[in-house]
Write a protein that binds this DNA or RNA. Structure first.
Lengths: 159, 159
DNA sequence: GCGTGGATGTTATAACATATCAATACACGA
DNA sequence: TCGTGTATTGATATGTTATAACATCCACGC
């Protein structure tokens, strides 16, 4: 079973629940969860790690859902804008949101050895970053908070 | 005069001081500040904003210091590893370190309108990110902390 | 001189992302 | 149900960012 937050969990239920939440959110807000978009989200959820746009594309292509880069990027744009997925800037890769429903400023812990990614939350406007922004008169609209290092399993392997 | 931290300053002295500090650090630690590396740092300092690798490369090429991508990427790798420059992951661009000397975990305020970038500091292992990492048993080696939004000047323009 | 290791020169290609325009589907009011 | 406007998809091309691989050079210590 793959890791989420570096811990095992019921993956099938996890996928199912998140998809259902995403469908519900779309119904509420008039967004359109089309076949490609749904499948893209399923793929990200199933992998439970950060996937490159072209990794996603190759899966979609195998399934006949489109073979050109814009297919993947459009689906990813939709998912990111809707809050169903996040871009990991440090990896140029994308991951399904692990906290769907919460209006959140996500933060990520990225293992450099096994490439697994855990999602957590920050209070971006509090803490030192928020203070620095206020001092500078800067208005924060979006934050990228990514920590790279070693997850527990890979620390053990190294030892 | 360009902006640093969204404020005016004595740019010539700023370049000169930082270069001198970088040279000193190289002498101390046995790093080699070669002509291409020095010039790359000068260019980043002179621009005082985030430059793409190919932006840097085109300046270097004009000066006969190399015309192929690896020239720029090697210089940038050196500067980043030495702590003389930082990569802005959200922009895939590079900027000279504004706090050379301090052993720091930098954070950036990035204006989406004018693309200026201010460097500040964080205490990565404190705050919520550090707490989340400790809870997860994750060892942080490097942090990417980038806030995107509007700088004071661009807020005024928008109004 | 000679070996060693870092730095550079050079070619090629991998990996990531977007512009553009035509075609199609879909929701919604007349 | 029929248009009409908008969102989505299809398709082609291209732009942008980054690295692999290998040859060569050069400073330095022996």
């Amino acid at each position: 079973m793959p890791a989420i937050g570096f811990e095992r969990h019921d993956h099938t239920a996890c996928i199912h629940d998140t998809l259902a939440k995403a469908e519900a959110r779309c119904a509420e807000s008039g967004l359109r969860m089309t076949p490609v978009r749904r499948r893209a989200l399923e793929i990200l959820l199933a992998e439970h790690r950060a996937l490159g746009a072209y990794d996603l594309l190759s899966v979609l292509a195998d399934e006949g859902l489109g073979s050109q880069p814009p297919v993947a990027y459009r689906a990813l744009d939709f998912l990111v804008k809707a809050g169903f997925a996040h871009k990991i800037e440090a990896l140029n890769a994308y991951i399904a949101c692990a906290h769907l429903g919460a209006d959140h400023a996500p933060a990520f812990l990225i293992c450099r050895a096994c490439k697994s990614v855990a999602e957590t939350d920050t209070a971006a406007t509090q803490g030192r970053l928020g203070a620095a922004a206020r001092d500078a008169g800067f208005v924060i609209e979006h934050t990228v908070i990514e920590a790279q290092g070693l997850c527990p399993a890979c620390q053990d392997d190294a030892a």
